[in-house]
C-alpha cells in the first residue's frame, strides 16, 4: 500500500509529534515559571490564570541582582564544580578497576552504592559536630559554613552514583579492543585514555552532569552545614517561601537565573552525545 519511503516519512512525523508533546509537558511548568518571573503581585492568583503578564516587569530580576542572590549562585558553582572534579577524579579509576578486574567483587561495589542509601537525618548531626572543628591557638579550624565542607559531604552520594553508572559504561566497552591496544604497545593507562575514554565519553559527561545537578539541588546538608558565607542558591530559593507570603516572582526569577549554568553545560555536552552517534544506535 505505502512505499517504504512513505512509511518512513509517516514514522518520522509520528516521532516528532510524540517528542513535541513530551517537550511541551516537560517545559510547561518552566514556561509557567518564566511567565511568573515577569508578573507583579496581583497576577499570581487569578481566574483564569494570567498566561502572559499584561505589563511585564523586570523588577523581580533587578531585586535578585541587587540582593545577595548572585553570591549564593557563585557558592553553588564553586561547590558543585569542585565536587564534580573530585568525584570524577576518583570514580573513573574506581569504576574502571571494578569493571575490568572485578576488584573487590560485588561487596565493594555494593558498599559504595550503600553510601547513597542512608537517610541524611542519621548522619547530619555527626557531620555537624565533626565539622564544628576545634580551636588551634586563637584560630577556629572548622568546616562549617565552608565550601570544602559541602564539597566533601556531597562525595558520599555522588561517588556512589558515578561509580555505578561508569561501571556500566566501561563494561559495555569490549575488552578485546583495549587488549589489542595494549598489545600494540600502549601502556594500560594510555590504552584507557586514548581508546576507552573517548568511546564512553557520552557516559562520562552524562554522569558528570547529574553529579553536578545532585550537588546543585541538595538542600538538607546545605541547610545545616552552612550559614551565610557558603550558602547555596538552592537554600536561598527555599527562603522565598515564608509563612505569610510566597515571593513567587522573585523565586521564579532566581530559579531561572540558576538554570543558566546547567543549561550551558547541557548544550555543551551535546557535542559528546552526538559524537557518540558515529559508534552506533538504531538507525531510523
Amino acid at each position: 500500500m505505502f512505499s517504504r519511503r512513505a512509511l518512513l516519512k509517516i514514522e518520522n512525523i509520528a516521532v516528532y509529534v510524540i517528542l513535541v508533546m513530551a517537550v511541551s509537558l516537560a517545559v510547561f511548568p518552566i514556561a509557567w515559571t518564566v511567565s511568573t518571573s515577569f508578573k507583579s503581585v496581583g497576577e499570581y492568583y487569578t481566574y483564569p490564570p494570567v498566561w502572559i503578564p499584561k505589563n511585564p516587569t523586570i523588577a523581580n530580576y533587578t531585586y535578585i541582582i541587587s540582593t545577595a542572590g548572585l553570591d549564593y549562585l557563585r557558592n553553588s558553582l564553586i561547590i558543585a564544580s569542585l565536587n564534580l572534579l573530585l568525584v570524577l577524579g576518583v570514580s573513573i579509576p574506581a569504576a574502571y578497576g571494578i569493571a575490568r578486574f572485578r576488584v573487590g567483587g560485588e561487596n565493594l561495589s555494593f558498599w559504595i552504592l550503600s553510601q547513597r542509601m542512608l537517610p541524611p537525618v542519621a548522619t547530619i548531626i555527626p557531620f555537624f559536630l565533626l565539622f564544628r572543628g576545634f580551636q588551634l591557638f586563637d584560630r577556629q579550624i572548622t568546616l562549617l559554613d565552608k565550601h570544602l565542607g559541602l564539597i566533601l559531604v556531597y562525595c558520599t552520594f555522588n561517588i556512589a552514583f558515578a561509580v555505578w553508572l561508569l561501571i556500566g559504561f566501561f563494561e559495555s566497552f569490549p575488552a578485546e579492543i583495549e587488549e589489542a591496544a595494549v598489545i600494540d604497545g600502549c601502556s594500560r593507562i594510555g590504552a584507557v585514555l586514548r581508546v576507552v575514554i573517548p568511546v564512553i565519553a557520552p557516559g562520562i559527561v552524562v554522569t558528570g552532569l547529574f553529579c553536578f545537578i545532585f550537588s546543585w539541588n541538595e538542600f538538607l546538608f546545605a541547610l545545616i552545614l552552612t550559614r551565610e558565607a557558603a550558602k547555596t542558591v538552592t537554600l536561598q530559593l527555599s527562603q522565598f517561601r515564608t509563612p505569610t507570603k510566597i515571593l513567587w516572582g522573585e523565586m521564579s526569577a532566581l530559579s531561572l537565573i540558576t538554570i543558566i549554568p546547567i543549561l550551558v553545560i547541557v548544550v555543551f555536552i551535546q557535542r559528546y552525545l552526538v559524537k557518540g552517534l558515529a559508534f552506533g544506535a538504531v538507525k531510523g
Binding site: 513530551a22 517537550v23 518552566i30 545537578i213 546543585w216 530559579s255 547541557v266
Partner: peptide
Amino acid sequence: TLLVMPVMISPVV
C-alpha cells in the same frame, strides 16, 4: 536540551 530542563529546577521550587 528542552527535555532535560526539569532536572535543572531546584526540587523545592
